[in-house]
Design a protein around this nucleic acid. Sequence first.
RNA 1: GGUCCCAUCGUCUAGCCCGGCCUAGGACACCAGGUUUUCAUCCUGGCGACAGGGGUUCAAAUCCCCUUGGGAUCACCA
Length: 501
Amino acid sequence: MDARRASRGAPVTDTVRVRFAPSPTGKLHIGGARTALFNWAYARRHGGKFLLRIEDTDPERSTKEYERAILAGLRWLGIDWDEGPDVGGPYAPYHQAQRIDRHRAAAQAMLARGEAYRCFCSHERLDAMRAEQEVEHQASAYDQRCRAVPLAEAERRAAAGEPFVVRFRVPQGSTSLVDHVRGDVTFQNAEVDDWIMVRSDGNPTYNFVVVCDDVDMRITHVFRGEEHLINTPKQVLLYRAMGAKPPEFGHLPLMLGTDRKKLSKRTGDTALQDYQEKGYPKDAVVNFLCLQGWALNGTQEIFSLDELVRNFDIADVSKAGAVFDIDKFRWLAGEYLRKEPIETLLDHCAPFAVSAGLVKAEELASKRAWLASVLAAEKERMHVYSDFPARIAYLFAKDDELPYEPDAEANARKHGTRAALLADFAAWLAPRLAAGEASASLRDAMKAWLQERKAKMPELLQPLRCALSGRAGGPDCFDMIAWLGPERSRARIASAVRRLA
RNA sequence: GGUCCCAUCGUCUAGCCCGGCCUAGGACACCAGGUUUUCAUCCUGGCGACAGGGGUUCAAAUCCCCUUGGGAUCACCA
């Protein structure tokens, strides 16, 4: 039966148990976040359990800081877990390093059963062997020399202190795995290396512990990146050797950089945190991540976490790698940003204005209404929260030193009447502002005023826009006047009369 | 190089499993027009793909084979 067919609808077997098993040796990779999301969605869709396990077996590079950041990142996305390092569960502990006794026992048992064997070959011999294989254009694999060492002799040599690793004894035949993304895949065992299960320092390796823990935690489905596909026959063989039923798999397409290679720092930000720090709305991140390899129905691009859960199926995930399209991501971010209620949006954007030095944190409360008014107008031009300070910086410039963008100044200078008209407008405007006339009313009055003078709108408004903001585009001029207030508006126009003369 | 995976617009994808509804749909980007005082938003339109070749079939983007191209992986890292 084709696995991709079989997975449609609710599984008829045991309760689904899936996991995400990050290694706390760095920030959460954006591809890892998607893997977590798909695993989580699958569990929620099928009423199963989603668990988190920390693969901290590399003590050199693992840190608690990274672990905390990874958990925080997942929570930020809206992913929760039923079992994990912080919430516990029936198969605790959920830190891989704490399960070492179990791993050692499993290795010992396999050694005793002959499923694994000690290998005493030196690094030098292994290196020489690899070099030779490379010359011969062969796959690099252990030549199985130590398979021939009798168990008794191996134990004697080990007891005598001779260093050794434990290798898996790959049987003959072929190995198939159930893959819900790709369809079933078969490998010839002759192509599978007698891989190392336990290092010479006694620590188990990834391929070994991941299977031990997945067996112990009753994992039913393993969905992970395609780079793991080639490891999978080793793991399937190990399940069998341990007397366990292998789970079903799903190897997710890689997320690619613009060079069509596995996404790396070379072609853009790779950490989830990078996007959080740049102010991408989290729902946009979730939505975009889903779009990399999965589609709701082919026409609806924007959907919620809830819609994902209701519609997600691992069999619908694409097989081909997806180039990370930052343009589409920014578009999506803008869509979500604009949908936010203004108060919420301000909460998200304000910190960026503070860190840019435009506003002091303690001023936030007193300036809140003003900032909200500005943001409500400027959000049309924003994609991510961090766009905010650059959008509003002109409001904080010194009035007589406002930088004019070249395009803005060029637009203003197209009009020969600019200085005179601006000066007249200033005289017209002053008493009205003093009287507290509202923006909408000013706008209408300005149109009538221009008509009397037989002047077109751009003739006034382009120089005025330059005077007020120094920018070629932006919000309505009378909104800007309202934000700046009478005195600063007057000062900026007066300054422009001189500077644009 | 060995092994494994993949192949629809520039990009993300729908369609493929269950061949006809496909003169291949949507979105981003791009281009043109409209709206706007400007930019942006918004609206309308345009550009643009079944990698190639063989089969099977009345009929193939859809099934099979080959070729080509791309990717992953080959650690006492996870």
